[in-house]
Each structure stands twice: as structure tokens, then as C-alpha cells.
């Protein structure tokens, strides 16, 4: 379980987090939603210790990650996989080299086994043919899938996704969403997904947490959007829907119409 307690973070004169508190339960997929610049990625970086809070703490299975040594933190990070927004693939390596990198670095497995496992990870994200290609020769969606394959090679307990569908076309976005669901189900991974794409939220998440003004303003099951009367949440959901302008794809939690009433993502009625 991951817990963030009362996180505060300031960059210069800008207060990004002003008391964010969050709990991620084992086995669930939590979507952290919010407007651009609301601090979603900053919060994500705190969860893996890439940023240190000015105040507050992050607990991973009860361990305060900011109170332990750097060596201990590095060991603890083996439980995490992170999919960065642009993929963060190493330019000098092929797709296979990228996926094999954690195995070559952290395991003593023979090269044949490393290659087999890397190819298996690429197959899992449906990218068998891209093994010899360099990142520059891959599309945006392929780069993210290679990065996802790299993130799962060491079989992490937690997978963190930073805007996994950002900048992708709807079909590729759906492919990524399917992969997130498959990995969560097949590998029993706890997933935290940063996004402002409500279609993705409904397709993959069990719960959502809305970050607003530096705090977790609302959190709950994605199926509870419709029952909520929180104006900030409803504004976010409606703005997202209008921006997209098309009905959501088949979702994990939301129907498109209920009792003949036209509804937005998550069953939120049109205002």
C-alpha cells in the first residue's frame, strides 16, 4: 500500500502541493486526475522519491521513503515501474536493449535468458517486430509500449503511469488502456495512472482522485461520479467530455445512458 500524507511542495514562489493526502490500495488501479499544471506529475514523482516533500511523508508498505537511506530507497524502487510521459527510452539502445537493460543491470541471468525475457515483455505489449529498432524509428505509441515493456521486466508490484495516452490517437489510446488493464489483471499489479483523459479513467480505473489547488479535492470509485454533487469534479468531467465531443468507448464503470437520460462520462448528467 502507498500512502501520501499531507504533502507540501513549493517551487520558488509557486505552491504546487499544499497538503495532498492519498492512499493507494494493493491491487487497485487509481487514476489521479486534474487540470494541466495542477501538480499530478509532481505528486507522482513524490510517490517514488524522485522529489522530496517540503512537508509531509510518503509511506510504501509503512516505510517512510524520505526517512530511509539512498541505498535502501534504491532497493525499494525495484518494486516500482514507471511509464514516463515521453517514454524516457535510452536513445542509444534498440527497443530490445531498452527492455533488457534492467535485466542486464540487476540480474545475473545469462544473456540468452535476458533476451528471452526481453522478447517476452515486448510480445506482451504486442511489439514483437520492433526489437532491433532504435527509439527514433518508433512512433509515439510504440515508444510508450516499449517503455511499458521495460517497466514490467523486473516484475514490479506498483506501476505508475504519467499521462500514458497523452498525444496519442484514440485507437492507440485504447490499445494502451487495454494493456494497462491486462497488466493489472495478469500480473496483479497496483497501478497509479496520472491523466486528464476521462475516457481512460473510465476504461481502466477502479478509483479516481481529483487534485485541485494542491490537495486531493475528491476521491472515490469512478462509478460514483454520477452521485457526486462536487462542482469542481463535475466541471472537470464536463469540460473533458465537451472537449472530446464524442461518446466514451465501452468503459469499465459507466453506461452512456441511464433511464433514457443523456449522460456524460461516468454517468454524470448533462447540465
Amino acid at each position: 500500500m502507498i500512502q501520501a500524507e499531507n504533502l507540501h511542495k513549493r517551487f520558488g514562489a509557486l505552491d504546487v502541493l499544499t497538503g495532498a493526502t492519498l492512499e493507494v490500495r494493493d491491487g487497485e488501479t487509481l487514476a489521479i486526475i486534474g487540470r494541466s499544471g495542477s501538480g499530478k506529475s509532481v505528486l507522482l514523482k513524490h510517490l517514488v522519491g524522485l522529489l522530496t516533500p517540503d512537508e509531509g511523508r510518503v509511506l510504501v508498505d509503512g516505510t517512510d521513503i524520505n526517512a530511509i537511506s539512498y541505498e535502501h530507497l534504491r532497493t525499494l524502487r525495484h518494486q516500482f515501474g514507471v511509464l514516463f510521459q515521453g517514454g524516457a527510452l535510452f536513445d542509444s539502445m534498440t527497443a530490445l536493449g531498452n527492455v533488457a537493460f534492467p535485466l542486464r543491470t540487476f540480474t545475473d541471468e545469462p544473456e540468452e535468458e535476458v533476451r528471452r525475457r526481453a522478447e517476452e515483455a515486448l510480445a506482451r505489449v504486442r511489439l514483437q517486430g520492433t526489437a532491433p529498432k532504435k527509439p527514433a524509428a518508433l512512433s509515439g505509441g510504440q515508444r510508450k509500449r516499449v517503455a511499458l515493456a521495460r517497466a514490467i521486466t523486473l516484475e514490479p508490484r506498483y506501476l505508475l503511469y504519467d499521462e500514458p495516452t497523452c498525444g496519442l490517437d484514440p485507437q492507440t489510446s485504447n490499445t494502451i488502456n487495454d494493456l494497462i488493464n491486462d497488466l493489472a489483471d495478469d500480473l496483479n499489479i497496483t497501478s497509479i495512472v496520472i491523466t486528464h483523459d476521462m475516457h481512460s479513467v473510465l476504461a481502466i480505473a477502479d478509483r479516481a482522485a481529483l487534485i485541485h489547488d494542491g490537495v486531493i479535492h475528491w476521491s472515490g470509485p469512478t462509478g460514483a461520479f454520477a452521485e457526486s454533487d462536487d462542482e469542481v469534479l463535475l466541471d472537470f468531467v464536463r469540460a473533458n467530455e465537451y472537449q472530446i465531443g464524442v461518446p466514451s468507448p465501452t468503459s469499465k464503470n459507466g453506461a452512456r445512458e441511464r433511464n433514457g437520460e443523456k449522460q456524460l462520462a461516468g454517468g454524470v448528467p448533462v447540465s
Binding site: 514523482k45 517514488v48 524522485l50 539512498y70 534504491r74 532497493t75 524502487r77 525495484h78 516500482f80 515501474g81 514507471v82 514516463f84 510521459q85 515521453g86 524516457a88 527510452l89 535510452f90 536513445d91 537493460f101 534492467p102 543491470t105 540487476f106 517503455a147 523486473l154
Partner: peptide, 18 residues
């Protein structure tokens, strides 16, 4: 610098690499 702005350094850290 390129590794930093494209999150490659963060990716190394998250893997548990110094």
C-alpha cells in the same frame, strides 16, 4: 542535459540505479 529533460535520468533512478 538531453537525458534530464527527456526523463531518462529519472528512469534510471526509478529502476534503482545510482
Amino acid at each position: 542535459g538531453t537525458m534530464r529533460v527527456s526523463d531518462q535520468i529519472d528512469a534510471l533512478e526509478v529502476m534503482g540505479l545510482n
